[in-house]
Design a protein around this nucleic acid. Structure first.
Length: 580
DNA sequence: GCCGTTTTCGGCCCGACTGTTTTCAGTCG
C-alpha cells in the first residue's frame, strides 16, 4: 500500500468517527493528522514499518502503530472495518469531490440511494443533471450547482503545474505589476513561494496603499483571456491554457502577517499557532492578537521576531522542526544560486552516437552560456555510445574522439573550463554500458537508470551500488528516475545508498530538469542529514537550459542544503582535486 | 488518538466563505 492509499483509509476512518456522535472530535483530528503525516512522509510508510520505525512519523502513536502493523501483515484492520461498516462505502468516495465533506456525503448517499463506492461519483453527476439534489433537505439549487462544479473539478484535477511553468507565468505577471509605482512589494504565495516541485495555484500578493489602482492595473494584464472577478481587495484572471492567477492586495502596514499566512504551509502554520498559544498569542492573517488586541506587521521578519523566532525561509516551512531551530538560531544557511560555480551534467552536440538523446549546442555555445552565469567550469556528459550498435572498440574510439575535442577546446577557451564527462546507463544487471578502458579516458562519469525501472528494492539497490562502484564514477544522476506527472520513481534502500555514498565519496544529483527535479526534496533532505554531498545541475540539452539551475537550487533549499552540502559550489581548483 | 521546557492528564489552530437557515453548520485552506 502506498502512502496515498493509507492516508485515504485514515481519512475515511476520521470521517466515520466524526459522524459517530459519541466520538470526540479530537480523535477525528488525530486520524486526520496521521493521514497528513503519512501523505507528507519522505519514506514509504511500508518501508518504515519494515524497519520498525513507524513511530518516527509525527502523529503516529501506540494505537496507530498497532493498527498499521495489522494493515501491513494482513491487508486489513479489524478496528477500522468495525468503524467503517456503519456507513455506505459510497460515502467515502463522494468525499473526494471538492465541497463535499463527511456530513453531506452521507446525506447524499442515503437520499440518492448510492451505496457502492464503484461509480458513486458518476451517479452523483447524473443526480445533479436530473435535478435530484436540490430537493434534498439541507440542499438547494445553489448547492446542486456547486456540487456539479465540484464533480467537474474532481474529474479535471491533478492539474498541478510544474514549478518552472508556474514560475514563468508568475514572473511575467510580476513584471507587469511592477510597472506601476503603487506596487510597493509583490510576492508569490503558497506552494509557489515555498518552491515545491509542483504548484497548485498561482497566487500573488501586493503591498499597496492604493488598492483600487493596483487591481485596476492587474485586470489590464495584456495576456489575460478573461477576468473572473475584480473586487476591492482581490481579483482573479484566466490566462491562456486556463491557467488562473489570483491577486490579493494588502495595506503596507499589515502586509507581513498576510504574506506569512498565505505562504503556509498548512502544517507550518498549525505548528506556529500552537507555539504562539503557549506564549499567550493568537495568530491570523491580520496579525498577532495579544490580550484581545491585534498587532500589525509590515514584513515577515518582524512577525517572526515578535514570536522570538529567526525568519524562516519559505522553502523550510513544511512543519518539520524548523520552528524549534528558529527559536535557538540554528536554521541552516541555505545554498543560493550565486554560490554555484559550475554545472556538471550537460549534453553537448558532440555526436558519440549515444544511446539516448544528444544535445544541440556546441562547446563554445555552452561555454558562453556558462560564462554569462558566472561559472568557472562545466562538465559535458553525453549519454554513452549505444552498446547494442557498436563494438567495444568502436565505443572506445568514439569516447577517444570526444576526449580529443574537449581537450582541444580547453586549450583555446580560457574563461570556462570544460570537464570531459559522460552519463552512463546502469544496465539491469548492474554493469555500466561503457567498457572500463573508455571510462579511463574521462575526467569523470555519472551513472543513471534509463530502463527497467520496476525491480524490487533489493535488486535495484544492488544494481545502483554496482553502477557507482568505480573511481571515475562521481555521482548518481536523477536517482529516482521519476518523471513528474508521468512516472513514479524507482525503489531503493536509501539508507544503504547514503551509507555507500559517504563511505566512497559518491555524490547524489539534484537534476534541475523541469519534470525531473530529482532527487525529490524529501530525499534531498534525508541525504543532507545523512551527510551525503549533492551535485546540483541541469541535465541541459541546449545552452539556454543552463537556466534550469534555479529549479535545482529550489529543490536543494527545500532539502535544507547549505553551500557546504553542494559540491559544485566549490571553485575550479577544489572541484578538480576532488575529481582527480 | 496523540503528546509533553507549564502536563503521563488535559489539552488539541484560525478564520473565511457559502448556502441554508431563521442563528449556524459544513467545508476549506
Amino acid at each position: 500500500m502506498t502512502n496515498l492509499q493509507i492516508a485515504k483509509v485514515l481519512r475515511a476512518v476520521a470521517a466515520a468517527l466524526g459522524l459517530s456522535e459519541e466520538d470526540n472530535k479530537f480523535r477525528v483530528l488525530a486520524y486526520e493528522r496521521a493521514a497528513d503525516a503519512i501523505e507528507h512522509a519522505s519514506s514509504e510508510t511500508k518501508d518504515l514499518w519494515d524497519d520498525g520505525k513507524l513511530k518516527e512519523l509525527p502523529g503516529i502513536g501506540e494505537n496507530l502503530t498497532a493498527h498499521l502493523d495489522e494493515l501491513f501483515r494482513t491487508g486489513k484492520v479489524k478496528h477500522f472495518e468495525t468503524i467503517l461498516k456503519k456507513f455506505p462505502e459510497a460515502m467515502f468516495e463522494l468525499m473526494e469531490v471538492p465541497g463535499i465533506g463527511p456530513k453531506n456525503a452521507l446525506k447524499l448517499s442515503k437520499a440518492l440511494g448510492i451505496t457502492r463506492a464503484h461509480g458513486a461519483i458518476a451517479k452523483l453527476e447524473k443526480a445533479v443533471k436530473s435535478g435530484k439534489i436540490a430537493p434534498i433537505a439541507g440542499f438547494g439549487g445553489e448547492s446542486q450547482a456547486k456540487i456539479g462544479q465540484g464533480v467537474k473539478e474532481y474529474q479535471g484535477r491533478s492539474k498541478r503545474l510544474l514549478l518552472p511553468v508556474a514560475t514563468a507565468i508568475a514572473d511575467a505577471v510580476i513584471e507587469w505589476m511592477q510597472k506601476i509605482p503603487q506596487v510597493k512589494r509583490i510576492d508569490t504565495l503558497g506552494s509557489l513561494r515555498r518552491q515545491a516541485s509542483t504548484v497548485g495555484d498561482i497566487d500573488l500578493t501586493v503591498a499597496t496603499d492604493k488598492p483600487e489602482l493596483v487591481i485596476d492595473h492587474f485586470v489590464k494584464y495584456p495576456k489575460k483571456t478573461r477576468i473572473i472577478e475584480a473586487g476591492d481587495h482581490s481579483a482573479s484572471l484566466i490566462l491562456p491554457n486556463d491557467y488562473q492567477v489570483d491577486l490579493m492586495v494588502q495595506p503596507v502596514a499589515a502586509y507581513g502577517a498576510l504574506l506569512q499566512h498565505f505562504t503556509g504551509s498548512k502544517f507550518h502554520n498549525i505548528k506556529l499557532r500552537e507555539y504562539a498559544i503557549k506564549k499567550g498569542y493568537s495568530l491570523s492573517e491580520y496579525g498577532i492578537k495579544v490580550k484581545g488586541k491585534t498587532i500589525q506587521f509590515a514584513d515577515e521578519q518582524s512577525f517572526y521576531k515578535f514570536l522570538d523566532l529567526d525568519w524562516i525561509p519559505p522553502e523550510l516551512r513544511e512543519g518539520e522542526n524548523e520552528i524549534d531551530l528558529a527559536k535557538i538560531g540554528l536554521l541552516p544557511q541555505l545554498v543560493e544560486q550565486k554560490d554555484i560555480k559550475g554545472d556538471l551534467q550537460i549534453h553537448s552536440d558532440i555526436d558519440i552516437e549515444p544511446s539516448h538523446d544528444l544535445g544541440t549546442s556546441s562547446l563554445s555555445e555552452l561555454a558562453e552560456a556558462a560564462h554569462q552565469l558566472g561559472y568557472e567550469y562545466i562538465g559535458v556528459t553525453e549519454h554513452n555510445p549505444s552498446v547494442s550498435t557498436h563494438s567495444k572498440q568502436q565505443v572506445i574510439d568514439l569516447v577517444k574522439k570526444k576526449t580529443d575535442i574537449v581537450h582541444k577546446f580547453n586549450s583555446s577557451e580560457k574563461r570556462v573550463h570544460i570537464f570531459n564527462g559522460l552519463e552512463i546507463d546502469i544496465q539491469p544487471d548492474g554493469t555500466r554500458a561503457l567498457p572500463d578502458e573508455a571510462l579511463e579516458l574521462l575526467d569523470y562519469a555519472c551513472v543513471s537508470i534509463h530502463s527497467s525501472f520496476r525491480g524490487s528494492r533489493t535488486e535495484m539497490t544492488k544494481r545502483v551500488l554496482a553502477g557507482l562502484d568505480h573511481p571515475k564514477v562521481k555521482f548518481w544522476a536523477h536517482p529516482t528516475a521519476r518523471l513528474l506527472q508521468e512516472r513514479e520513481g524507482i525503489e531503493v534502500d536509501w539508507e544503504q545508498i547514503f551509507d555507500f555514498c559517504t563511505k566512497h565519496n559518491k555524490w547524489l544529483e539534484i537534476d534541475g530538469w523541469p519534470n525531473r527535479l530529482d532527487l525529490p526534496d524529501t530525499l534531498a533532505k534525508a541525504a543532507v542529514s545523512a551527510g551525503v554531498k549533492l551535485v546540483v545541475d541541469t541535465d541541459s540539452h541546449a545552452a539556454d537550459q543552463l537556466e534550469y539551475m534555479r529549479f535545482g537550487i529550489s529543490v536543494a533549499r527545500r532539502g535544507w542544503a547549505t553551500k557546504a552540502d553542494v559540491v559544485n559550489t566549490l571553485s575550479l581548483d577544489r572541484i578538480r582535486s576532488l575529481i582527480q
